[in-house]
Nucleic acid binder design. Structure first.
Lengths: 130, 130
DNA sequence: ATGAACCTTGGAGTGCGCTCCAGCACAAGT
DNA sequence: ACTTGTGCTGGAGCGCACTCCAAGGTTCAT
């Protein structure tokens, strides 16, 4: 039940980049920073091969990054993730992050209504000929 | 009907910083970058004095920044703002920005539901004793 | 009148998150 | 066989938005 087929021999880095919405450079950078849950395997000639599991984790990284979690915090999360019995800690991090995201959203929404007010003001001003 | 009194001689930079939620350094940086609508006046000894108008504009800058508008785009907006008859252009910029903010919000909200799902998963996992 | 607390400037430095590059190896299509 | 494309590494470079610093001036309370 995969959205897009991942062949058993794995995806090339460019394919994984396309699927995750990240750039090839970013993928290598994340790996260098230790953000991958498992490093992707290598072909006989040393090229990365991404499994479906690898790609799924990239999705998690995107989720965390695009909600504003800094690289170094993600790193801590991943390190936890790699050890068993850390479920409670992972939960704590996610819940703290959730609160953080909600605060962000709230602030942006407040500013958004101010933007809307300004837009309404200009719409009237422009309509009234300059 | 001002929220906090602004004396006629104006506020010091640190007072303006406190009111706007920006740092003193950021205030000077924004001014250097040409983000102020009007540069604040100076005391006899050359210290900045912020009027209520100045402080209000800082609020606008905060609104644009915290919704993700880059400094260089704000700069263009301010330059427009300083010229008369640019109301339609200002409106266009604000509307484009509004769309951008809505897109951002939407993406973050999507990721948020994914975070919530993960949290629910861990809540169950943790409850079931590790 | 001495010291702390504030302000000024120009410019250097920082942290973040990529992004790009050189120089090389391998892969795939024709 | 050849050419084009893709991949590898280590490391340099970049854009952004501040943030800090040195060196000095002013203000004010004790």
């Amino acid at each position: 039940m995969t959205v897009t087929e991942v062949p058993p021999e794995g995806l090339t880095i460019s394919a994984a980049a396309q699927m995750s919405g990240l750039s090839v450079d970013t993928l290598r950078y994340y790996e260098k920073e230790g953000l991958t849950l498992h490093r992707p395997g290598r072909s006989s000639s040393g090229q990365r091969r991404y499994t479906e599991q690898n790609v799924k984790w990239l999705g998690t990284l995107v989720m965390l990054r695009r909600t504003g979690m800094p690289i170094r915090d993600i790193k801590k999360f991943v390190e936890l993730y790699r050890r068993d019995g850390t479920e409670a800690d992972r939960l704590a991090i996610l819940e703290a992050h959730r609160v953080h995201v909600l605060e962000q959203l709230d602030e942006v929404q407040t500013h958004l209504t101010a933007i809307n007010r300004k837009i309404d003001y200009y719409k009237t001003a422009v309509m009234d000929g300059k």
